[in-house]
């Protein structure tokens, strides 16, 4: 079971802050992203346009990062604080 969270513009475009994915076959962030994109046309659009950053357990990672049950994976737009 993987907890997935979304922030800022991404959260609004998906109308979703958090969800849980139960799929033992997902082994990387890129695979999880593809799985999420397959949910609907809107999700497909959101996950294939613009640059998205990802984090696993609060550390910034790239798509090759492996994920395991219990991880928290976050997707969000480039940051704009300060």
């Amino acid at each position: 079971m993987i907890k997935v969270v979304f922030f800022a513009a991404l959260r609004e475009q998906l109308n979703c802050h958090e969800l849980t994915i139960v799929n033992e076959n997902l082994t990387t962030v890129a695979e999880l992203k593809a799985e999420l994109a397959s949910k609907s046309e809107q999700w497909q659009k959101v996950f294939t346009t613009g640059s998205l950053l990802s984090a696993v357990n609060h550390n910034m990672v790239d798509g090759e990062q492996t994920i395991t049950s219990g991880d928290e994976v976050a997707f969000f737009p480039p940051v704009t604080g300060g």
Partner: peptide
């Protein structure tokens, strides 16, 4: 560039998330 904060700007022409 690294800390996960996001700014939404509210203007007289509506609101929008700022681009990095």
């Amino acid at each position: 560039v690294q800390a996960p904060f996001w700014k939404k700007e509210n203007t007289n022409q509506g609101e929008q998330w700022l681009a990095a």
